[in-house]
Nucleic acid binder design. Structure first.
Lengths: 117, 117
DNA sequence: TCGAGTGCTTCGGAAATCGAATCGTCAATG
DNA sequence: CATTGACGATTCGATTTCCGAAGCACTCGA
């Protein structure tokens, strides 16, 4: 499966609009998570796999080649993986989602306890 | 497949941390896109399908039940689908990603033209 | 009553994902 | 040296997910 890149046709969109490419890229399993787990610096392959709840190594490798291809991730000479500048930008763009997820947790748990009454 | 919700174990994380639930939810194909396409108000099933590049109706339905379950989407009496307050929060949290994708497009296209030289 | 437009379901095939086994390399150890 | 173990990475069969075309039940206007 081709790596989504802005300007080219992607899965689910023939326009190649950057946002659509991004939605395709991040709509693939583990990609959001991988970016998140790399937020603190370079991580090796096996360590990264562990951080991602022991996801399948074959898929991890596939995702990493996609992210390398998309220039979000780079591989250092010591073979560890790290976010590029662009990748860090993506991680920063994801930050509001972290805050939102907390809000989500509150709302959902509140709704659940109300259901119980 | 169970809908990811904060506080419960989700795919790829036994902790149930809200962020992990969110990463699972949004890491499923089309969920990011659906939230995005609902940003301007209620949309009917078939219209929504068209906006999502004619994605499979079976998967659309599955995604909608997930999003309903996760309280991001609600269905109005006239059967149209719309974002809840929480859903709008998620959409707002996605806004930085839109800006980032433009930056991504720039960087990648620059790199490509440099390759060509 | 008839078509056309809905929301939604079914189901067989295609594609993505999984996971365990395994390979080759390298560094440390004996 | 030989051995061991950790590593990045690959292979492959099984499972899960996704796709897409067809069709069903319903509504509404002609």
């Amino acid at each position: 499966m081709a790596t989504p890149r802005p300007g080219r046709a992607v899965r689910g969109s023939s326009t190649g609009r950057p946002l659509m490419a991004a939605l395709d890229l991040f709509g693939r399993r583990w990609n959001l998570r991988i970016v998140w787990e790399l937020r603190h610096g370079p991580v090796g392959f096996r360590a990264l796999q562990e951080r991602c709840d022991n996801m399948s190594s074959s898929v991890l490798r596939q995702r990493l080649t996609e992210l390398l291809d998309a220039a979000l991730v780079e591989q250092h000479p010591d073979t560890t993986y790290a976010l590029t500048e662009l990748g860090h930008g993506a991680r920063r763009a994801l930050r509001p989602l972290v805050r939102w997820s907390a809000e989500w947790a509150e709302t959902v748990s509140t709704a659940e306890s109300e259901d119980a009454r």
